[in-house]
């Protein structure tokens, strides 16, 4: 049962019953002598070759599967391209599908990702990103760089001249993520359940975050008393939080003609601006 020819060994090995019967004879023939050493080396090489052949077959199989997937995807993309771009519900479903199979439609080895290229979705998303920047910057002077997500969606839709619902909050959040490499500090933050988009690199301290949240509930207006009653803060702490926002960060405007409290503070991002 000694096989001297290498190709004959491979042939023998593919007929699996022989695989089991190969090792024992090697041992039985003993580990002594130069002949035994050669036999040992030879079979080692043969095993390596076999394993290479096997993994090559697997890789080929995977490649063909991937190609199939890619073809299907290309087909899907070209068939549904317009729907994906125009129908928010379909786009959301598509993006969720991508998420569940672990594919980011915007990521990829090529610029914008090959999938994004197929779909033209990358351009759409970047375009939206530019419009988001536009809205954030043009409203920054009055809201101090913080805008409610809903308001942002509304203004972006207006800028695009499309009806409400064509651009969704989901799309905007996704676009903001694509802006991250720019390092401009665009970020979605959640305050008391309200999603806000921050376009300035400015850390909100904890008190400010809470104040912003409360102001948003009240349509932008906030007074010391509300903070004392609702949050149980001391007057000093409430005043300090508001003063910081007003004087240091310019996040709010002061109103000295408030009918109830005499002085109130207004967070512009909590107000809805119709222009």
């Amino acid at each position: 049962m000694v096989v001297r020819n290498r190709s004959a060994l491979s042939a023998t090995l593919t007929n699996s019953p022989y695989i089991q019967s190969l090792k024992p004879p090697m041992h039985r023939l003993g580990g002594v002598g130069i002949g035994a050493f050669e036999r040992h080396e030879q079979s080692k090489r043969s095993f390596a070759e076999l394993s290479n052949a096997l993994s090559q077959a697997q890789v080929d199989h995977l490649h063909s599967q991937l190609n199939q997937f890619r073809t299907a995807l290309t087909h899907f993309a070209s068939t549904h391209r317009d729907t994906i771009k125009n129908d928010p519900a379909f786009r959301r479903a598509f993006q969720q599908m991508c998420l569940s199979i672990g594919v980011d439609p915007l990521a990829g080895p090529r610029k914008g990702g090959w999938w994004a290229e197929l779909l033209g979705l990358g351009d759409w998303q970047y375009e939206l990103g530019v419009q988001i920047v536009d809205v954030c910057i043009s409203t920054r002077e009055r809201n101090g760089g913080i805008i409610e997500l809903k308001e942002l969606v509304r203004l972006v839709s207006k800028l695009r001249g499309v009806d409400a619902g064509v651009v969704t909050e989901d799309d905007v959040v996704r676009s903001i993520k694509t802006l991250q490499p720019l390092g401009a500090g665009y970020q979605v933050v959640e305050l008391n359940g309200t999603k806000m988009v921050r376009s300035v690199v400015k850390e909100l301290d904890r008190d400010q975050a809470v104040v912003l949240g409360l102001a948003h509930e009240a349509g932008g207006r906030i007074v010391v008393d509300i903070l004392v009653v609702r949050l149980g803060w001391t007057r000093e702490r409430s005043q300090a939080a508001l003063d910081n926002m007003l004087l240091r960060d310019g996040l709010c405007w002061i109103d000295e003609q408030d009918e109830e409290s005499g002085v109130s503070y207004w967070i512009p991002s909590g107000m809805q601006w119709d222009e």
Partner: peptide
């Protein structure tokens, strides 16, 4: 009148 004219704090001299 622009919308800012309807914002209450617009009628106060701002400190910041």
């Amino acid at each position: 009148l622009p919308s800012i004219h309807s914002a209450p704090p617009f009628f106060t001299k701002q400190i910041n």
